[in-house]
């Protein structure tokens, strides 16, 4: 299943990545190499095998619905690239 440059640009947008015009051709060709290797999967006879999402057959444990998180604002705010009054700063979203 070869993909073209339009698909790359669409997928890049979904992934919130920029692919410049000059890089697009090379990126497309690299990704097509990977996808053609991955296409070996199509030869597998999987019949009605159930998909395996996790290596161990275990159930996710549920914890009690009580607040365990402590207030870590003072520790996490200083590592933000831009902040003011304990809020993260981003470019204006609403005019």
């Amino acid at each position: 299943m070869a993909i073209n440059q339009d698909t790359i640009l669409r997928v890049a947008h979904l992934a919130r990545l920029q692919v410049s015009e000059q890089d697009c051709e090379e990126t497309t060709s690299r990704l097509n190499d990977i996808l053609s290797m991955v296409d070996q999967l199509q030869q597998a006879d999987v019949g009605d095998i159930a998909p395996m999402a996790h290596p161990l057959d275990v159930h996710q444990p549920l914890r009690q619905d009580i607040i365990t998180e402590t207030d870590i604002r003072a520790e996490v705010m200083p590592i933000a690239p831009a902040q003011e009054d304990n809020c993260y700063l981003v470019p204006r979203v609403i005019e």
Partner: peptide, 21 residues
């Protein structure tokens, strides 16, 4: 990019689900 493509609409069954099987 490969991962986003494999999970995207229309390709999920062919790639991700197949790989999980």
């Amino acid at each position: 990019l490969v991962g986003t493509y494999a999970l995207s609409h229309g390709y999920y069954d062919a790639y991700y689900l197949k790989a999980q099987k």
